Amino acid sequence: MKVVLFCGGFGTRIREYSESIPKPMIPVGQQPILRHIMHYYSQYGHRDFVLCLGYKADVIKDYFLKLNRWANSDLVISNYGEQVDILGQQPPDWKIALVDTGMWRNIGQRLLAVRHLVADEEIFLANYSDGLCDVPLDDMIERFRKSDKIGCFLAVHPPFNFHLVEFTDAETVRRFRSSQEAEIWINGGYFIFRNRIFDYIREGEELVLEPFSRLMEDGALMAYKYEGFWRAMDTLRDRQVLEEMAERGETPWRPNCVD
């Protein structure tokens, strides 16, 4: 199953990094967050990727052009360097389409730009490329397959708590409630689509606005609610949390990977 990864945004909320590299290339541990996400899908057998590039597309292209299968593996080198053998688990064999979808396109238009690359896929996966989670992907896909829906997104709780304000009138505060108490769910950026999603997207439209509204009108959109680990990298604080987890060896999004 092909995986479409949206890698073209500016990452303005984490500008300290994104001024020099695109957001998906910001490192978590020793690897860019993009590579962690690709490993997540790879461990479920999905190794055919379509990367929708935009801002600093050359940085991502250069990374994969220079990537070799020995870089993060233990090796045995013999015959004066002529023979290289990998010890232990082999790195995954990925097929990666690197498509420059433009600097200023939104996610809906980036998806339209790679429509031809998923034309033969009855179902395909998609991801914002800025968040990590340990959702059981096989179960998420199976529930979607059994449904008659056209789109599915991962629904998660915000990883932080904030106070909601209720009013009795325009100015008088009635009470505060915590966001956890209110059972708030947000879009986690992990998607599954049937190919008919393209019938719902018009020129210029953002993916989760008009197209998702049409899906909801037709009863064709579902959410996979998940209360396990999820964290988006929207701010420097988010990146710090993920970096500290990686330093401790806590990588629930990649439990079976050594690379």
Results as ranks from 00 to 15, higher is better:
V3L: 02
G8R: 02
F10V: 02
G11E: 05
I14H: 05
E16H: 13
E19S: 12
P24E: 07
I26H: 01
I26K: 00
I26D: 00
P27W: 00
V28L: 02
G29L: 00
Q30H: 14
Q31A: 07
P32S: 11
L34S: 06
L34K: 04
Y44Q: 01
G45K: 07
R47E: 05
C52Y: 12
F64I: 12
F64C: 04
L65K: 14
N72V: 04
S73I: 09
D74N: 11
L75Q: 07
Q83G: 01
D85W: 01
I86Y: 08
Q89C: 06
Q89K: 13
K95I: 14
V99P: 02
N106E: 10
I107V: 14
Q109M: 15
Q109P: 06
R110D: 11
L111D: 05
R115G: 06
V135Y: 04
V135N: 03
L137C: 12
M140V: 09
E142L: 14
S147G: 03
K149H: 15
C152E: 09
C152D: 03
A155Q: 08
H157F: 07
P159I: 10
F162M: 04
F162N: 10
V165I: 02
V173F: 07
E181L: 05
E183Q: 13
I186R: 01
R194C: 03
F198C: 02
D199N: 13
Y200W: 05
E203T: 10
G204Y: 10
E205F: 03
E206D: 15
V208R: 05
L209R: 08
E210C: 00
L215T: 09
K225E: 09
Y226K: 07
E227C: 12
R231K: 14
R237T: 08
Q240R: 06
E244V: 00
E247T: 05
E247Q: 06
P255R: 11
D259I: 09
